[in-house]
């Protein structure tokens, strides 16, 4: 508070002074509170729908919380310790859910990053029908998960599905492992690759053309151009894409619920399905909140590791 009250009147006086217009003082483009005014709508929404529920969630996770029951006893960290106690009712469901989420994330992220990157490079070239193909690859992304889920459940049905019908096989696409994971990853890639492709395309268009010209003059091969011009130019975009893709994959929910219904067994019952069942079907909201905080901690760690691993390194050849 001290510095604005002392410095601002001086500036204000100068601005309003007789010589203000002619003197070369700094032109004020906006009032000091303008940035906050611009951020206010977002902050209000953020506080209402993210911050407040997040704080309430911590509170809930310390209680045996059912919003309809009169008694919501404080249980301290019991909801958290139960997740690490192999004799508790939630232990197996939760860790199987975490395992399923981890498997899906590890299996899907490489494809969801590499395929859109390749597509973006192709779609960035000039060829007839380019806009059409850009639209085609983006199109599945606009479909809702319910549409995609139901569609694939019937396409992939082992006995009456069209895939086995056309191939003449009896592959258990959605009723046995590893096929269920392969199906879920493949349909997710088909469904959402358009989004990452668009981001990469925008990133590619930001790489200055001179760099490609210089590479050409130096006689670089196509692979060398990609490796030494395109990839470094996409570094920040890449970091963004990998981060949001990991988070999106870790939040996988609808596909497994609709296509495999968590099966076979509980192998595709992801952490989010477990939390939904615990919180909104069994109404053990304290326990569900504790689960979601534990997942959030894991995702936080993964994100930090990943940002550290991908941050800009000093090129070795300069030292």
């Amino acid at each position: 508070m001290a510095s604005p009250t002392t410095s601002a009147p001086a500036r204000g006086a100068a601005a309003r002074g007789p010589g203000a217009r002619s003197s070369p003082t700094r032109i004020r483009r906006h009032a000091p509170w303008t940035p906050y005014a611009f951020m206010a709508p977002f902050l209000v929404i953020f506080a209402t729908f993210v911050l407040a529920p997040a704080v309430l969630g911590i509170w809930m996770s310390l209680h045996d919380w059912d919003f309809l029951l009169p008694s919501r006893p404080f249980v301290g960290l019991d909801n958290y310790t139960a997740l690490f106690d192999s004799t508790s009712a939630v232990f197996e469901a939760f860790w199987h859910g975490m395992r399923a989420t981890a498997i899906f994330t590890v299996a899907s992220v490489p494809f969801l990053v590499a395929i859109p990157l390749g597509l973006a490079v192709l779609l960035n070239r000039r060829f007839p029908g380019r806009t059409f193909f850009r639209a085609v690859f983006f199109m599945p992304y606009v479909l809702g998960v319910a549409v995609v889920g139901l569609l694939f459940r019937f396409i992939l049905d082992p006995n009456i599905g069209i895939v086995n019908g056309l191939l003449g096989t009896s592959t258990p696409w959605i009723t046995a492992q590893p096929w269920a994971w392969i199906s879920l990853v493949a349909m997710t890639v088909w469904w959402t690759l358009g989004f990452n492709t668009i981001i990469y395309l925008a990133g590619l268009q930001d790489i200055p053309g001179e760099l490609y010209d210089a590479a050409k003059v130096d006689g670089a091969s196509a692979w060398q151009v990609f490796r030494h011009v395109t990839l470094p130019g996409l570094r920040t975009v890449h970091l963004f894409v990998v981060t949001i893709t990991i988070l999106a994959s870790a939040n996988m929910f609808g596909q497994a619920l609709l296509v495999t219904n968590g099966g076979p067994g509980d192998s595709t019952r992801t952490a989010l399905i477990v939390m939904l069942t615990e919180g909104l079907e069994s109404f053990r909201m304290g326990s569900a909140a504790a689960m979601s905080y534990l997942l959030a901690v894991f995702l936080g760690i993964v994100s930090i590791v990943q940002v550290l691993a991908m941050r800009e390194r000093r090129p070795r050849w300069r030292s």
Binding site: T48, P53, F67
Partner: peptide, 17 residues
Amino acid sequence: TGMIGAGVALSACGGGS
């Protein structure tokens, strides 16, 4: 902002008693 946040929290807690 604070009040909105608190309001949400309160209304979420409210009614249970």
